[in-house]
Amino acid sequence: MIELDSVKMSFGDRTLFQDVTLLLPEGSFHFLTGPSGAGKTTLLRLCSLQLRANHGRVRLLGQDTRGLDRDAIASFRRRIGVVHQDSRFVDHLTVAENVTLPLAVSGRSSDDPGDLSELMGWVGLGGVADRYPPELSGGERQRAALARAVILSPEIVLADEPTGNVDWEMSLKLLDLLIELNRLGKTVLCATHDLNLIRQAKSRIPARVLRIRDQGVSAGAEL
């Protein structure tokens, strides 16, 4: 599902990681952890095709992503839902319009209000659909971003510090949503500093932990 083969990523003289080889099977749940600046976000950006590896190969959904043109990358991104710590929106569109934006850009209909209200209810944002993103709290923004990330029913969900700006209660709610997505068969990769969140998840699902350290990624790291 997500496969990195001898991947090296560097910016100028600074090498974030090299010779990284990973295989995240379909339907798995992985946490990605490590110190700040180790390259967690960069690894997620590689997986969402926002960056290209300096060396090595990134395979997504069974396809080598090297040499993909911009349209093909756009098509891939419709199959990958991404949630960032500072999720950004189109601020002059309502929350509902932002959440359904992936439908619009992929040419699919967003005319069924039942589907949308069900999704908004699932993330607990039923009452804010007509509000604008700047009016939302941090937790509401993250849940709106999650709703937007999954509206096209992607096979992969990438979350970059999704609980970074919210309290513990909201973190648990977001974790619940990610776990629920995983139980629906989605492959989830979640970067986080929050060891308590990881412990909470591991107590409920067979989540695995990847740790970025010393320019490498170790699988099955102990907490």
């Binding site: 349209d71 756009a74 098509s75 419709r78 950004r88 929106f89 601020d91 992936p102 850009v105 096209l152």
Partner: peptide
């Protein structure tokens, strides 16, 4: 720029 970044992130093609 933010609008464009968001649109690219969610899979909008350049032509769209």
């Amino acid at each position: 720029g933010q609008v464009i970044d968001v649109l690219r992130l969610i899979g909008a093609r350049d032509s769209w």
